[in-house]
């Protein structure tokens, strides 16, 4: 993980008071999170398994969309290499607000077992990440849980103004 100075006490840390409009918009957003297919390595297979018959993604309203312009959640599943880092930043910039990032698996969290010259030590060196999933590879149930946590998080945010950038990256 990157060394950022994160200010946890901003906004008092307390949940924000939400209006009905906020709640309605958040309800809509959380129940139709369209995911960008970003399976890079082994975790990508578990992501596909989460979308397949047994652990279905579609019941949460999540569909895999290939184009970043249409997606809201980017699930970085797999090892991010230095050759690829430029492209993940481009794709992240092409996604429209509001957008969230789930970092799935050890390789995306911190570089994982690949402590080598060609691996980026964590996707959060190049894009800001909202949720980190541990595991190598995390089970499909972990990804489902992460999606539901993300839905919970979205429902507690203020919908109106543009997303407050979490970090400098």
């Amino acid at each position: 993980m990157a060394q950022h100075k994160v200010n946890f006490s901003e906004n008092g840390g307390l949940p924000v008071a939400l209006t009905t409009v906020d709640k309605l918009v958040n309800w809509g957003r959380s129940n139709s999170l369209w995911a960008l297919t970003y399976g890079l390595a082994c975790c990508g297979i578990e992501m596909m398994a989460t979308g397949a018959s047994r652990y279905d993604f579609d019941r949460f309203g999540t569909i895999f969309r290939a184009s970043p312009r249409q997606a809201e959640v980017m699930v970085v599943a797999g090892t991010l290499t230095k050759k690829h880092a430029e492209f993940i930043r481009r794709l992240y910039d092409q996604m429209a607000e509001p957008k969230w990032v789930i970092s799935m698996g050890s390789c995306a969290n911190t570089g994982g077992m690949f402590n080598t010259y060609a691996t980026v030590q964590g996707a959060d060196r190049v894009i800001p990440v909202d949720l980190y999933l541990p595991g190598c590879a995390p089970r499909p149930e972990t990804l489902q849980y992460a999606l539901m946590m993300l839905q919970k998080k979205i429902r507690s945010e203020k919908a109106g103004k543009a997303q407050r950038p979490k970090r400098l990256v």
Binding site: L40, T79, T81, K83, H84, F114
Partner: peptide
């Protein structure tokens, strides 16, 4: 080469 993790090294 987008998934080259340096396994041989």
């Amino acid at each position: 080469g987008y998934l080259h993790r340096g396994m041989e090294k």
